[in-house]
Design a protein around this nucleic acid. Structure first.
Lengths: 222, 222
DNA sequence: CACCGTCTGTACCAAAAGCTACACAGAGGT
DNA sequence: ACCTCTGTGTAGCTTTTGGTACAGACGGTG
């Protein structure tokens, strides 16, 4: 695979010719996959990461080992966190793991800084990416403090389910996502099943009554 | 007060002459103070806010009315949230309240956009401000999910105490800050007093044993 | 088919945090 | 001096969440 895949990505479509050449010379594509993390806390960042295909999961790990997802990075998006570390010369403060079959482009720090200096479109993309991340983190924070676990689980199901209403995730993965434990997820899931909102299977959850789930969330609070 | 106070602020010291003029014509200074919020969720943002003096508190309000501080904005910093809404044309998703005796500069949207286009230093400031915010939110999220309330309270005391080891905050304010209720803060405070870590008074908490508090936090988790 | 690792279901107990209710204490105004 | 408002101290109960322990179910592999 060449960097042309990268150039066709949204953020880079409006680059000037000089910018394109810079990108071609500097960018590197890499194949990633679970379970090895591709970034760890404290690691120094060598450049800006863009997701070409697949998805990255950025998460925190508590001292006791429980995880909690901070946000996902989808194709065409950049790991603003790394970007962050890039501009502030700070160390990366979280873990990043790739979904299966993920391709990531790494644009070395100096190259990206130069692009940022010269290309308006890159400035825009950068600010917008940071903005978006701020909103996501904000939402996450508000969710954590305003909603109960069952509501957050319902939300997770609704948001990540496929169009067919299926979610291919083990309960352990859901627990990691929400920052809780598997047992709790199992317990909450039992209630959801009892209400007829979902059906559970090995590694998959099927939504039977999306409105019911939505109703759970709509009811204010904790 | 004139906008010269604004120009002497860190972010604007390196402006070109044109930028300065733009700033002088466009910026407006305003005095703010509690308890009236100066920004509310859904409000459309008319420009970028910079804190000249005092402090702004950005917080979320849950449906049940409990608050939780997201972050503070100190002098020389900008309300990146507003910035955010400015670039994304999104509505402001949180509440902002000023401490007593706070001066805020409002740079109208079009003016700020023009400054961002033309002035490298403004681009830098913007990205850096967004970056910093991302880190703060990240930390906050990690704290919420990894630490118990008593640890977070200890942390609050240590971080916000004056050099003399005093914190001039009511327990209600601490509760709002942590996203909990006053009673819980009182209960936790009793334990801290029992351990001899702090002394409480009306509207003020004195730290007697900072190491003890720090020890609380150091012990991993939840 | 037997085995084994992974995933799910569930029962029970413990800890943390929220809620309600009320007493008291200090500060400031009349 | 009295009253009121705001802030603090405390008790007891409920709900939510976490932790431990174990049983059973499913799927893949030899």
């Amino acid at each position: 695979m060449t960097t042309t895949a990268l150039e066709s990505l949204g953020p880079f479509q409006q680059l000037s010719e000089g910018g394109r050449q810079l990108l071609r010379r500097g960018a590197v594509l890499a194949q990633c996959g679970p379970p090895a993390p591709i970034l760890q806390p404290g690691q120094s960042i060598s450049g800006a990461y863009f997701v070409v295909r697949g998805r990255l999961r950025v998460y925190a790990v508590a001292p006791d080992g429980t995880e909690a997802t901070l946000y996902f990075i989808n194709p065409g998006e950049t790991c603003v966190f790394a970007l962050n570390s890039l501009f502030n010369d700070l160390r990366y403060p979280a873990w990043v793991q790739a979904d299966a079959d993920t391709t990531v482009a790494l644009i070395p720090g100096p190259v990206f800084r130069e692009l940022f200096q010269k290309e308006t479109s890159i400035q825009d993309v950068t600010v917008r990416a940071l903005s978006t991340l701020v909103f996501r983190l904000m939402d996450e924070l508000e969710e954590v403090h305003a909603y109960k676990l069952d509501q957050r689980l319902a939300n997770l199901l609704l948001i990540h389910a496929s169009a067919a209403g299926e979610l291919a995730m083990t309960q352990q993965q859901m627990a990691d996502h929400l920052g809780t434990t598997r047992e709790v997820v199992a317990r909450l899931m039992r209630d959801l099943v009892a209400h007829g909102y979902v059906e559970t299977g090995r590694g998959v959850t099927r939504i039977k009554n999306a409105d019911g789930l939505a109703g759970l969330i709509a009811t204010p609070g904790k």
